[in-house]
Simulated scan of single mutants.
Amino acid sequence: MEIALLLSKEHSTLPRAEVDAVMDCEGVKYHLKMEQEGLLILDIPHKNPEDLERVIERLSYTHEVFQILLQVDENDLLTEAEKYPWDEIVSSSYAVRVKKMDKKSKLNTSKLEWDLGGIIKSRVSDQVRVNLENPSTFLRVVLKDGQAIAGNQIGKISKKHFFNLKPHKRPFFYPGSMSPKLARCMVNLTRIKKGQALLDPFCGTGGILIEAGMVGARVIGTDIDYKMVNGTKKNLEHCGISNYQVFQEDARKLELPHKVDAIVTDPPYGISASTRGEKSHDLYHQAMKSLQGLIKEDGLLCLATPHYLDLDEILAGTKFKIIEQHHIRMHKSLTRVISLLSLV
């Protein structure tokens, strides 16, 4: 089957990279059919609804996913819709929503929703009703580049989760904490699987550990500041995550009884962060030398750094190599670099 993913436009490369990582992690094979701004179309040769459900549950930079039913010139949509067996798709209730993804289309979205809804109504049982609030079948139509892509929504990523877990809404808050959406994305980039161990050696308020715990990882967190350690524990408990180990330790001297499957971290930097007087470059370099011995050979490390630090210099003398990077402009004087690393 072919599926379409409506991607966030907050960033140019992270949404696609996250989809690739989660598909890979969950073992879902696919062929890329189309990639445009905000839209990804994939062909999945072997349909397994449970696999797709797990993928959708993990994503952060995707808005919704739908199975494609029709892909035609936008001016032919209603004609083709007249021929489609809607009674095989629509069950007890339905809603139709049209989304323009560029300014090229001259179609009126409200009229198109009304007309398409009327066609569907004439093809289904009299007992089937329109339900705009909570339909059993949600039909999405995307208009882009003169094309109309219509499909049955199979998943929608909840904004509520990322809103409710914003740093200032947790029991313990400290300025400079990473957004839950980016934290989830960084966790996903490491391809961590349910039941595997993930380490954040600069856990701060625990945002990364929360998102890792949400996808089923066993989480391990350390911080040099005992206040952060206690705060992380409070936040993890608040989010219902019990499978964790969090303790006070210096990341540059960290030892663990067993190697971990992935490391995700956002080390401190700048005026608002606690670096205990250590220069950021030296702190990062010493930490990376320590962390290379704590991760499994096939494990991945996802790291956030400010743009003004030279990551190649930081990694010099370690076994880590950069395999992908994404740049996020925070404001005019700071760009955050998200780097995915593997062992050589």
Rank of each mutant, 00 (worst) to 15 (best):
N131A: 08
Y284W: 04
I41R: 00
L14I: 04
M101A: 06
P15L: 01
P175G: 13
V98Y: 01
I271E: 15
L6V: 05
V215Y: 06
L236I: 06
V229W: 06
L7K: 00
F163N: 14
L334Q: 10
S339Q: 02
F172V: 07
N152F: 08
T305W: 06
G195L: 12
F162I: 00
G204Q: 05
K106F: 07
A304D: 01
L198H: 02
D51T: 13
K169R: 12
R58Q: 05
N75G: 11
V124H: 12
A197D: 06
Y84W: 11
K289M: 11
K181Y: 03
D43Q: 09
D24M: 14
V337A: 05
A262M: 06
F173K: 14
K29S: 11
K9R: 12
A251P: 05
I119N: 15
V246I: 11
C203F: 10
G317V: 04
G146V: 08
L32N: 04
I3L: 07
Y174S: 09
G176M: 03
D126R: 14
L165V: 15
N134H: 08
L189M: 02
L254T: 15
N152W: 04
H31M: 14
F320S: 03
Q286G: 15
V98A: 01
K100N: 01
L199A: 07
T109D: 00
H31Q: 14
S177D: 13
H326A: 03
K99P: 09
F172P: 12
E324A: 14
